[in-house]
Design a protein around this nucleic acid. Structure first.
Lengths: 361, 361
DNA sequence: TTGTATGCGTTATCAG
DNA sequence: CTGATAACGCATACAA
């Protein structure tokens, strides 16, 4: 074959064989040098090293994967990539994965269960396992089934199937804490803007809202629950209906910060003031929450840590060859700022919450 | 070998051979069925299909890559993942890549040139090419060298090496437009908060600021240029020095929105008002810009489109086997809101700029 | 149309 | 310590 003469032919990438020939050793020795395994004589080691740099040799990861059946790649499947929350989750995953010497294969925008499952399937063989965020229960269950010698960590609450580990945020507890706080500072009528139907996180937050109200002896009412979809504009659009409500709510708990932002914006347009005329709170503690006017009272959720811990969990799971400790819940903490009617200083927590880098543009 | 009897043994993943045996054909035929190539008799086709579904067979992508030397994977290398900008870039890349049937392998947090280059190298063999964002010129040049039968698209301005295609945002033009606008509405003394030293985008924006001032017959002065690093807190911290400046600037142009946000927050703490006492503008048009109080005048940059177009460009480049049309620049458009002293309605552009999904938590 | 055989670049198992 | 050589799972010329 022409393989022997292709010296400078078309700048083909050097293979292990080229290095072996150049170093005057066998491919086995070259392999040993690059894997640090076994003992290799000093002389051979040096010759291989220099031949490798000379030829700009870099082991072919694909071939390596084929023989070892390990890809050193972690699949990440998300329903979407929009917004700060996902961005932070990925950042946390990326960081932890790198520390563990894994690369990440990201895939998102999977509207329905089928799409998500098919993606997950197509990743089999390309990745050593999966970290998947399932927006609804059907998807969670479907992904949970895949765990066939294929470690999966699900980022989804209320998932009690035993086939894989899962991790989530304390949506319910966070919502309860928020409502309890609003009640404690005197709010009597508290409305809620709900998240998209079917979304598990949204449902958990709604459940927290209702539970906390009932526990306080208040009654819940559909008239106080408005349908949103996690977007700013849905929050904006709820404004009219909320203000027309009789009696008018003194506080509104939005299922996430984006909707709270939209609502505050809309309220401002009507001439009413937050929090003097009506209090507004959110959930997530996105970056802009503390910079708004008024600063937004919300529930802090550490998306970065969620991602990081999902990876750690996955690593354990992969080493054990199966689920290790079932479900894990990350705490959600109440962050009281001005939008709910208390008198914290406007930029009180600017410095403590040090953001790393604002933009790369 | 035990391969023959391992029927239900340990739920090993089925290979092409298992399917061939089950369907009573050769592996070549199975391969043909899965690649749609050549003609396969209807009978064989059906038998293979049913055997495949029966065994839950899924072609091993790694092996396929080894023979075809195509991975169907696009490497994405970013300096960081923090903030809305990167998040949107990835979203754009992910979307376009999926359309082109590519997966994306993401890697970020590469402080220095060496780290970034080593990552890029280690990806060789795992990906069919790279889309890389280089924060500084050294890195850009280094990555540009890699293009060795390995298509690369650089997301970086001012990159004039011919070894690969590149794409960037009109930083210079955007900054010019901003300064021209500020001058046109009567601002006489305009300060600037610069981005991190060495960052090409930051430098281009600074250049635009200076050029626009000079073109208007104004003189530039180091006393009016303050050092920031793209973080909110750096903007916050610049406040004191800016207000002490004599004469006090009537407007401040921050090299990105995050710094503008920090500055506005700090100004509010001093009791001064934006824009009545001092105008503040930014760059990027992050989501929160329009919801701030006052809404932020800024320069809109479509990060999503940047990512999308980088992929299209990469596809072309990969098909041609080399750079196709050199450098491409995405427009940056001035978005005038209230923070610079004009009288636009607060939520004027809430609806036109429809955000998709606010959060997935 | 179908099957056989070879190679992709490595790792890993054995003898030497 | 080192070198043949057999997998790994698949694609593909080539032969039938």
């Amino acid at each position: 074959m022409s393989r022997i003469h292709r010296a400078q032919e078309v700048s083909q990438v050097a293979t292990i064989r080229d290095v072996a020939r150049a170093a005057g050793v066998s491919i086995a020795t070259v392999s040993r040098v690059f894997n640090g395994s076994s003992r290799v004589s000093e002389g051979a080691y040096q010759r291989v090293r220099s031949a490798a740099t000379q030829l700009d040799y870099c082991p072919n990861e694909t071939a390596r994967s084929l023989t070892t059946s390990r890809t050193s790649t972690l699949g990440v499947v998300l329903p979407d990539l929009y917004g700060e929350f996902f961005s932070e989750v990925i950042r946390g995953i990326d960081h932890a994965a790198r520390q563990e010497h894994y690369r990440i294969l990201v895939s998102s925008s999977h509207a329905d269960t089928d799409a998500l499952v098919s993606i997950a399937r197509s990743l089999r063989g390309r990745v050593d396992g999966l970290i998947a965020m399932a927006p609804d229960e059907g998807t969670a269950a479907a992904i949970g089934q895949m765990t066939d010698n294929f470690p999966v960590v699900l980022m989804s609450p209320r998932f009690n199937v035993q086939t894989c580990d899962s991790i989530s945020i304390a949506n319910f507890e966070g919502a309860c804490a928020m409502i309890e706080h609003l009640l404690s500072i005197g709010h009597q009528t508290i409305a809620m803007i709900k998240g998209p139907p079917g979304n598990i996180d949204a449902e958990e937050r709604l459940r927290g809202y209702r539970t906390a109200l009932r526990d306080a002896g208040k009654e819940t009412s559909p008239a106080l629950e408005f349908q949103g979809d996690f977007t700013e504009s849905s929050g904006y659009q709820c404004c009219g209906a909320i203000l027309r409500c009789q009696p008018r709510p003194t506080a509104v708990f939005a299922a996430n910060d984006y909707m709270a932002v939209g609502l505050i914006c809309a309220i401002g347009d009507t001439g009413l003031r937050v929090p003097q005329d009506i209090a507004v709170t959110g959930f997530d503690d996105i970056a802009l929450a503390q910079y708004m006017n008024p600063p937004l009272t919300t529930v802090r959720v550490d998306a970065y840590e969620l991602g990081e811990r999902a990876v750690r969990k996955w690593i354990c799971s992969a080493q054990e060859g199966g689920p290790v400790d079932g479900h894990e819940t990350l705490p959600a903490t109440l962050v009281v700022r001005n939008s709910c009617g208390t008198r914290e200083p406007v930029a009180a927590d600017l410095r403590p919450r040090q953001r790393r880098r604002g933009s790369g543009t």
